[in-house]
Amino acid sequence: MHELSLMESVIDIVCETARQHGATRVKSVRLDVGVLSHADPDALLFCYQAVRHGTIAQAATLEIKRVPGEGWCLDCAKTVALADRFGGCPDCGRHRVQMTAGDELKIRDMEVI
């Protein structure tokens, strides 16, 4: 359950950024979470409910955008869809694929008052 630490970090960064911008309340937070990343979105949402209490983000909604997995296949010389982090190319079946997307764990933006 490292999702708890991840969400604590999200709340820290969100509250710090909001204060730097002179905001008094956070209304919503949007995350990019890649499907190949090590975090589970349901666990992130669950932990979010627990860690936002008592902060200026305690009423903020959380939206998680899933970023699909993509990789560059060295043999096909093209971008292919990647279903597993260390998976093979869906076209040629070989494993010389470098992940190019789907690993994201990012705070994209937030709405404040």
């Binding site: 991840l6 970090s9 999200v10 820290d12 960064i13 969100v14 950024t17 909001a18 911008h21 905001a23 008094t24 209304k27 995350l31 764990l105 990012k106 705070i107 994209r108 933006d109 937030m110 709405e111 404040v112 008052i113």
Partner: peptide, 18 residues
């Protein structure tokens, strides 16, 4: 007077640990 606005954050969740 405060108003609603969007702040672009664009930071890795693990950036503090990193």
């Amino acid at each position: 007077m405060s108003q609603e606005r969007i702040i672009q954050v664009e930071r890795d969740i693990l950036s503090k640990n990193d």
